[in-house]
Amino acid sequence: MTSDLNTTATPTWCPGCWNFQILAGIKSGLAEEIKKGKNKDDFAIVSGIGCHAKIFDYINLNGINTLHGRVLPTCLGMKVGNPNLNVIGFSGDGDAYAEGIEHLIHAARFNSDFKYFVHNNQVFALTVAQPTPVTELGYKDKTNPLGVKFQPLNPIKLMLASGCGFVARVFAEKSQIEYIFKEAMKHKGFAFIEVIQPCIIFHNDKGYLEKTYSLEKEEHDKTNFDAAWKKADEFDYSTVKKIPLGIFYQKEKPILEELYPQLAELKKKKMSWKDIKR
């Protein structure tokens, strides 16, 4: 089934890059949705600029490979343009947490019904090794020989504080991507999914995987905001003791597409603005 989603583009990710696992998990999740009755054209993908963005070439779906940092408003625009599209956005950590961070806060607030995957490799990999806002203290590269001086941002806490209704983190393993893709698709509203994806060239954190554990297995109550906040504090992106994975917090609230009667009508009639003749 995933073969329909294949393209002829040759992947240019480094051999062994975790992005291959993300790609495989997304394609498998999409294939599952298509098997359940959705069409390929019911989906659209959006990517930013960075290593993650190459995923746009490797999935045979419509959409746009847009500017650095602007994945979120583009996704929102596509949902407003056609509320019946299933829109999936992909960003890197530079894209999501540096260049376009203002959009992240507002995407949580608008709660448009699209899904957002942040490939967090904690480094600007495509521009070869500069630190991002989630790179650990002390990290050095050619442009920062004195080491990173600032505490990394905690995107999970940022999303919780912004009122996001689906806050999750997974590791870049195919099975985890498949699981969270399915959960995110079931969720009505904006879903924020951070994918820990260590860059095997510039930020090779081989120790990460064994520090991770499943929130679900630990019977974390994902409807409990305070519990989610505490879990979010366990990993500060700088010192690695334990890394909780899974859904931190989930709460459905009204989506943008239902709050405006014009869009609700399009949704009801399974139409887009393109179909409106005036």
Partner: peptide
């Protein structure tokens, strides 16, 4: 907007405005 059935949205800044507009435009709106 209701009478004519179009939609007007205020976004977080002009960067969001034009990028959302490109997103909407490519869906045919």
């Amino acid at each position: 907007q209701i009478e004519n059935n179009h939609i007007v949205l205020e976004l977080e800044n002009e960067i969001a405005v034009i990028n959302a507009a490109v997103g909407s435009a490519i869906t045919g709106a």
